[in-house]
Write a protein that binds this DNA or RNA. Structure first.
Lengths: 196, 196
DNA sequence: CACGTTGTTGGCGCCTCGCCAATAGAGATT
DNA sequence: AATCTCTATTGGCGAGGCGCCAACAACGTG
């Protein structure tokens, strides 16, 4: 068989398995059996199991981005932003299981639950400090949106601590300005908006 | 030895090891040796290796939140928001390595690089669709902040797809409103602000 | 026709994990 | 004080997984 085809076939089988179960629970033996080849052939093509996993994941995430429509050239900022958000949600709906498996903790539900609980504590702290009223506290949508802000805080903090593209001062200012606008404008607007 | 003390001691050693290396690269034998006990004792206390890992991670993430200062009662929204952001950054500086190890992909650098590349592609797409000028494109701070927005998009999408606390419509509206404000107000303000 | 190259396989050795029988030591009971 | 029970603790056994390597086969080439 053609080496490129074989390599691609193994990767395809590995992807489907890594999508449904986390790394540690998928054995090379299983991947080889699913691909109809010997186990040693996996090492021949990809070296180690980790390299196979990285290759599979890289190809999973290497999806062509949603094409940019033409009309954005003369459109307003809001229209272009709307289009960008649409592109993201579209991408997410197209191959949902891929992103859910790749991002997060790799698909482990119990592990997910542990870090989820810690993040909910962060949200609790935000709610307490900014002094949300009891009516806002009771709505789960508010918690959901604040979890969104928490994700932003984690990402910008990583930009500061790991990548160095932001300073601590910039992270602070960015998060403060954003959170103020969320509380005063965005969140009330989303809450008041009726579902279509 | 007192069972509680022993359990705590094993957890402490496991935490330090799991902080510096990802799950798969830390063996139970190593944890047992570091704790000065037999390997079988780990199974006696925690059952399986995964349970030990979850227990260690849960205790790592179970840090007491930064206490809320008193003056927030009569302060403005902005002051309280500032205090909340301060709390987050403080928490991050106090035990930085814990959060960096727990969040993200579990401390695996190569895996991190793969998903990082995918996320940078998302940022590229945002930049292209919203039509940022070449001067804004060139600044790495802009990319850093848009990565923050990307983190928010991932978190809110998880709220929609996994938790169900937000609808797709709400996610869309929330992200659109937020991104418009980021582009028009927040990002320019952070860029123009001189470092202290 | 011989020969080197390469895809492919089965097997060997090492490591890790979960389980279990065996041990030792402390506390309780008589 | 002696015994007995309970439990913390250990070493070892078996299963499974991974990386590596020698052997085989098939195909093109001189």
């Amino acid at each position: 068989m053609d080496p490129d085809d074989r390599r691609q076939q193994i990767l395809a089988r590995a992807q489907t398995l890594f999508r449904e179960r986390p790394y540690g629970e998928v054995s090379n033996t299983e991947i080889a059996a699913a691909a109809g080849v010997s186990r040693g052939l996996l090492n021949h093509y990809f070296g180690t199991k980790r390299e196979l996993y990285l290759a599979a994941l890289a190809e999973m995430l290497d999806v062509p981005p949603v094409p940019v429509p033409e009309y954005v050239a003369g459109a307003s900022v809001r229209d272009r932003v709307c289009e960008s958000v649409n592109g993201w949600l579209q991408l997410l709906e197209d191959d949902q299981e891929t992103w859910l498996a790749a991002l997060g903790t790799g698909g482990d539900p119990e592990l997910e639950q542990v870090v989820d609980q810690a993040r909910e504590g962060i949200v609790d702290h935000i709610i307490e400090v900014v002094g949300l009223g009891p009516l806002a506290r009771s709505r789960p949508e508010v918690r959901g949106m604040l979890r969104g802000f928490s994700g932003m805080a984690e990402a910008t903090s990583a930009e500061w601590l790991k990548r160095g593209r932001l300073t601590r001062h910039q992270v602070h200012e960015f998060l403060e300005e954003t959170l103020v606008r969320l509380l005063e404008d965005v969140i009330p607007r989303v809450l008041d908006d009726p579902p279509p």
